[in-house]
Amino acid sequence: MPQTLTVTGLMGLGCRHPTWTSAEPTVQADASAASASESPDQRRAAWMAAAQAGDRRAYEKVLADSVGLIRAAARRQGVALDRLDDVVQETLITVHRVRHTYDPTRSYDTWLSAIASRRAIDALRSRGRRDSRELHDEFAMETHAGPDDASAAAEQLQRAQRLHAAIARLPPGQREAVEQLGLREHSLSEAAELTGRNSGALKVNLHRALKALRGHFHGEP
């Protein structure tokens, strides 16, 4: 699997960050060695400033340090525990895309929290939209209760298990496409960043996976 993210791949996502040909070696050299007198926010600000100049070590440090802050911001917005990690991932991807908008003279934590809160709200909205389309078990039981409920539930469970088993048997590329685009509901661009594949390959893999699954369940070629 290709591990490299390309700038071109990120350019089509709205927020753009043109490359900077003249890196700042002084910032880069000092960034990793944060002084003890610095507050955590200042330390992260220095790391991000160095990351903007291309310092990978400082970048990985600031992103790792950001995970806790993102989780806290998402919790403040009311994101459920089981969705926190999704918000963390979405926020990290956004941070990568818009890192050129950070001004090192200002608070890194404020900048990050604003992005994390936005992604948390997006997650809550997408959850809300999905919930409004779905029929909840309790409601379904109350309104559609019948003598066949137990067998219908068992059959549904079996179908779900068969589907999961069929997905698990797909080739790795196709399985990844179904998981990212179908099950986790990531957009093409997000899935491309998460998997390191380009969006064209993901689309082809998803198409092939759906064809294979249709063939598996309905006997279509």
């Binding site: 591990q3 490299t4 993210l5 390309t6 700038v7 960050h17 043109p18 490359t19 900077w20 040909t21 890196a23 990351a51 903007q52 100049a53 291309g54 990978r56 970048y59 990985e60 992103l63 790792a64 995970v67 990690d85 963390v88 991932q89 990290l92 991807i93 990568h96 890192r99 050129h100 908008t101 950070y102 001004d103 960043e193 998460l194 390191g196």
Partner: peptide, 26 residues
Amino acid sequence: SEPRSHAVLIDRLGTGLVPVRRLPPP
């Protein structure tokens, strides 16, 4: 596990890191 997947994502984002031109003040 999720922390592991965060580490993988951070590593991947770090791999693709290029210098960026900072946005001028508003």
